[in-house]
Structure formats: structure tokens, C-alpha cells
């Protein structure tokens, strides 16, 4: 076993353990913190897979923006402890079985598939030489230019939607009272 594989095993173990911690915590604040650990280790995994730009994006957007949004909402809600409710559904073993079956099915499908390497224009040494940022940028702004424009529209719609959903409407603004 070489160094890369040892690092992969460390990252994989941490990701799996803290994913389980995320979905089993009763207090959502602890779940957010465990999710933060998961995201940092996923970013490390991306570095191992020659995707430094994606690793940076993972830390900045996921850990920096999305998780902070979760924490903000958690503080805004200030859910009383008793309203947290039962930690899990009473039939959780059934659902855990469903999830386990899904994982098994995916693993079975992947094990039976053959992923023959069809070398594309960006082998790892080329990516390392030009930098993954430049490689991604070249593809993003040529081949994927139209989806790139569409995704900005999606973000705009999400922004407006979030504002409309959380705004308190008064009768003068045409909303229902006490909404």
C-alpha cells in the first residue's frame, strides 16, 4: 500500500464515521458540526483525485456558505429542546434495511460493470501541469457555456424564492393577515 491509498483509507473512514454521526445526533447543532468534518474530508479526497479546484470549492461553498446557512437557521429557529421530537421514526429498522438494500444494490451494479479506461484529453500529469483550475475553466467556458448561464438563472430563482418564502406579508402588501 502506498501513501495515496493510506490517505484515501483515512479520508474514507472519517467520512463514513462522521456521516453516521450526522444522521444519529439528536441535537441538530452537533449534526452540523459532524457534517462540517465530512465536508472537509471530502475536500481532502478531491485533492487526492487531482481536483484541487473542486476541493477549494467544497470548502468555500459547502463548509463556508451552506453550513453557515444551516447554523443561522438553527439560531433563528431557537427550537425548544422538547420540540426536537423523537430522534427517529419508530419503524427505523425497516427504513435502515431499505437504505442498506439500496447501498447493496448500487455496489452490486458497480461491481458487475466494467469501466474501461477511455483516455480523454486531460490525463493527470497534464492536469497537474496546467492546474485543475485552468483545465476546468477551459471546459466550463467552451463546452458547458450554456449550462453555466442556466445555472446562474437557477441561483437567481432560488434567491428570489428564499426571500419571498421568508418575508412577512402585511395586508397592505396584499398578503393574508397573520401569515
Amino acid at each position: 500500500m502506498n501513501l495515496d491509498q493510506a490517505f484515501f483509507l483515512y479520508f474514507a473512514a472519517m467520512i463514513v464515521v462522521f456521516s453516521i454521526v450526522t444522521i444519529t445526533r439528536k441535537n441538530p447543532v452537533y449534526a452540523v458540526m459532524a457534517l462540517l468534518v465530512v465536508f472537509f474530508h471530502v475536500a481532502g479526497l478531491y485533492v487526492l483525485l487531482n481536483a484541487e479546484f473542486i476541493a477549494a470549492l467544497q470548502v468555500v461553498v459547502y463548509a463556508g456558505a451552506i453550513l453557515v446557512l444551516y447554523l443561522f437557521v438553527l439560531m433563528l429557529l431557537s427550537v425548544p429542546r422538547e420540540a426536537l421530537g423523537a430522534a427517529a421514526h419508530r419503524r427505523w429498522p425497516v427504513y435502515a434495511l431499505v437504505g442498506g438494500a439500496t447501498t447493496f444494490e448500487i455496489a452490486l451494479l458497480l461491481a458487475r460493470s466494467k469501466f474501461a479506461p477511455r483516455p480523454g484529453p486531460y490525463p493527470p500529469d497534464v492536469v497537474r501541469e496546467m492546474g485543475s483550475t485552468q483545465a476546468i475553466g477551459t471546459v466550463l467556458f467552451t463546452e458547458f457555456l450554456y449550462p453555466f448561464e442556466v445555472i446562474s438563472l437557477v441561483l437567481l430563482v432560488a434567491m428570489i424564492g428564499a426571500i419571498v418564502l421568508t418575508k412577512k406579508w402585511t395586508p397592505a402588501q396584499g398578503g393574508e393577515e397573520g401569515r
Binding site: 481536483a51 479546484f53 473542486i54 469501466f115 479506461p117 477511455r118 483516455p119 480523454g120 484529453p121 486531460y122 490525463p123 493527470p124 492536469v127 485543475s132 483545465a135 476546468i136 477551459t138 471546459v139 466550463l140 463546452e143 458547458f144
Partner: peptide
Amino acid sequence: LHSMRGNV
């Protein structure tokens, strides 16, 4: 697959 599409 030595491609950048997945990353994009």
C-alpha cells in the same frame, strides 16, 4: 477517464 467534464 482523463476528462474534465465530471469536474465541471
